[in-house]
């Protein structure tokens, strides 16, 4: 198998820079105390690791023309690790099932009513729904006037895509 050293170098640099993502993320979240930015800030941490990756790789490697395969390999691995990390953080922060598990663990044993009223450490199911709607409003997917919700053009496009995807794969309504 040819070219193994350059790939090993790319993988080694990827592992080092990928480790910087959680380290930076934890630091930033503790410094700024904004848990609502948990998921968006993973993008910033990824950009930092990406710059660091390139700096380390090109410091140790020959010019770009001979490094293209290792470059693609390292980018793909870094992207994979970042996507996995982002998914994990999304589940831990906003994951509905994950929150149910921690709630029931905290209550030890609970009925459906206990679970809905004490969802997310006592926040309750109404607030959970309201949070989703607030996020959709702040990201310009919908607007609200009094108690009427209206889709923006961005919201319509997303809904169209979702309906098409679910009907194409016969997934039902989901949610």
């Amino acid at each position: 198998m040819s070219g193994a050293p350059q790939y090993l170098l790319a993988f080694f640099i990827t592992l080092i820079t990928a480790a910087s993502i959680p380290a930076l993320h934890i630091s930033v979240l503790h410094i700024f105390q904004k848990p609502e930015k948990t998921v968006p800030w993973t993008f910033g941490c990824f950009l930092f690791s990406f710059v660091l990756w390139n700096a380390l790789f090109f410091y140790t490697k020959d010019p770009i023309a001979s490094a293209l395969p290792a470059l693609l390999s390292g980018y793909a691995l870094l992207g994979f690790l970042w996507l996995g990390y982002m998914e994990m953080m999304f589940k831990i922060y906003r994951g509905f099932s994950h929150t149910l598990v921690t709630d029931v663990l905290r209550m030890q044993s609970a009925t459906l009513t206990d679970i809905t009223t004490n969802f997310a450490e006592g926040v309750g199911m109404d607030t959970m729904f309201d949070r989703r709607i607030e996020t959709l409003k702040s990201t310009h997917f919908l607007t609200q006037q009094n108690d009427v919700l209206t889709l923006t053009s961005k919201g319509k496009n997303a809904a169209r895509m979702g309906i098409f995807f679910k009907s194409f794969l016969k997934l039902g309504k989901g949610g």
Binding site: F96, I133, T135, L136, T150, G155, A159, G162, K173, G174
Partner: peptide, 11 residues
């Protein structure tokens, strides 16, 4: 996604 389902129901 709960948010996606909300958008689809309104759509």
């Amino acid at each position: 996604s709960v948010s996606m389902r909300i958008l689809e129901e309104i759509y």
